[in-house]
Design a protein around this nucleic acid. Sequence first.
DNA 1: GACAGGTAAATTGGATCCAATATCCAGGCA
DNA 2: TGCCTGGATATTGGATCCAATTTACCTGTC
Lengths: 237, 237
Amino acid sequence: MSQPPDSRPPDARLADLAVLIARNRPRFRTATEFVEAAMREAILEGVLPAGAPLRQEDLAAAFGVSRMPVREALRQLEARALVEFHPHRGAVVAEISAEDSADIGAIRAALEPAALRLSLPHLTADDLALAAELIAEMDAETDPGRMGELNRRFHMTLYSRAGRPRLLALVEQHLSAADRYLRFQFAALGYHPRSQDEHHALLAACRAGDADAACGIVVRHVIQAGEQLSAFLDGRG
Amino acid sequence: MSQPPDSRPPDARLADLAVLIARNRPRFRTATEFVEAAMREAILEGVLPAGAPLRQEDLAAAFGVSRMPVREALRQLEARALVEFHPHRGAVVAEISAEDSADIGAIRAALEPAALRLSLPHLTADDLALAAELIAEMDAETDPGRMGELNRRFHMTLYSRAGRPRLLALVEQHLSAADRYLRFQFAALGYHPRSQDEHHALLAACRAGDADAACGIVVRHVIQAGEQLSAFLDGRG
DNA sequence: GACAGGTAAATTGGATCCAATATCCAGGCA
DNA sequence: TGCCTGGATATTGGATCCAATTTACCTGTC
């Protein structure tokens, strides 16, 4: 859904949270894991908007647990730069800014070509078919949330054979972080078909096994997205 | 210590007060922060070796706090991949492996050239002088711990003007992670003078403002270190 | 003698309780 | 009137307490 920074009452957001909560409850071994995963998703999806205060008591009540699992989850999210702690004042969802957007862009522009270069020689026909399918799904998709997810899966599919779990985790983490920013752009400017052209070109280069061309496309893709976002954020800064 | 009562403007005295406060505050704001910082250092320095079990009760006693700050600190370190949680079985210091070493090497090889390229145009004469000084100190240093610290500071000095806090944090994090591995190499194989040659070459390229050459050196430097480590780790199974 | 089962000890995960700190508001004073 | 000061309140940080799970050991049987 579109999200002009919270024009909705807080209890409406809590209701959205409740949906996320009930759905995934039994899949985790400990409450901390569960809360951490749910809150990460909520932040990345924009259910919890940037700057939103995170009252431990309220969150505990929403999740049906005590404050302690909430506290541990918040600490993990802090280490991932998704929430900020202010001692004795509480935690808030990490703010977004043009500078941070550029920062994430620089990181992606460095990591993703590396992942692609490692992965490309080992990509299977199935991988490429899946990537093509994801592009097609994106053509039909209008919801920004689903769109971000498809975009992420498309990129990760191409990187998936890199055989470097730690590198891939970093890439996915920053792809998700970028998604969080992209939501703004989608909501305000609509979807960019130009991005789809680049996806097609990228897939073609991967099919041809042309690592240099593919990496070039990825870098341009990332940098251009970053600049667009920075300009957009500066404009409303 | 005492000063002539009112010979100076009030804001000067306020500034001095701020300095005094800042200096007397290596004391942390919260116990969790303190424990987290101490344990991170302990793991990176090798005081807590890989695979070591982390009993919450023992750590709490060692730090003179209750189990709760320890638990929160452990969660943060988990998010940074320095400790591993096994539900209901406890946490252990993250294991090291040849694969993980290669993983870290790939990440460094991607991030550090990017940081250097952004930073290089803004490096000052002071920065370069500091870097040269750190190389000289490394020549005289024999302790592996101090050596790692100097090496880290040398690299970070060259990257410090990148103006991308998030990127720099990632670089430093993986530089530290690599240090943890390097300790083994230092201990078993002794120090490598070849690395110092590369440091000199890197500094020279930076002085000359030659980004391509500097990045090339960094990449070779990182990759070579990674291969050496992987071979070493493979060798001891 | 070895293995299965069950029980007890140890340790973690989670809840509750208390203390410390920041914010907010009212009232006094220049 | 404006600012500073003091206290009330809400919220976090930390300690203690209880429950759930795992592991190890012990015992009994085959």
